[in-house]
């Protein structure tokens, strides 16, 4: 199956939650040096430590852009523990297209970036 399915292309050309948040509770930026993909995530938390608002900025291939868009939709309203527990397999299931070994980093960049941001946030609170 082709990875450029309609839902991927839809998220690529009409990304959800694209943009920035001023003074976010969580912010992290990372790159995938292999292809130069770049993702920054911004999130605001509510009192119960769930993600109330999330946005991202990204530059890169269709897979990295679409996965960032789909991930932000998926995690809104979820608790930090839940989001931190999302596995690579979960992310690939969310994408619903077969990701080859060489594109894996593109597909997982947004998730890894968000989880790194959560880790930084949790450490900062200790």
């Amino acid at each position: 199956m082709n990875i450029y399915q309609e839902h991927i292309l839809d998220h690529y050309s009409n990304p959800r939650n694209k943009g920035q948040i001023d003074n976010p509770d969580i912010y992290y930026k990372d790159t995938n040096p292999l292809c130069g993909d770049e993702v920054a995530v911004y999130a605001r938390l509510d009192r119960s430590k769930s993600i109330s608002e999330i946005r991202f900025m990204a530059r890169g291939c269709a897979i990295s852009q679409a996965s960032a868009s789909m991930l932000t939709e998926h995690v809104k309203g979820k608790s930090l523990d839940e989001v931190y527990g999302i596995s690579s397999e979960d992310m690939l299931r969310l994408l619903m297209v077969p990701i080859s070994h060489v594109r894996m980093k593109c597909a997982l960049l947004a998730l890894k970036t968000l989880q790194a941001g959560i880790l930084v946030h949790m450490k900062g609170k200790k």
Partner: peptide, 19 residues
């Protein structure tokens, strides 16, 4: 992105490099 160019060309049997 160059990776998308390479990936879609690959579907046509064409091998180029992207990166």
């Amino acid at each position: 992105h160059a990776h998308d160019v390479a990936a879609i060309l690959d579907q046509e049997g064409i091998a180029i490099r992207g990166g």
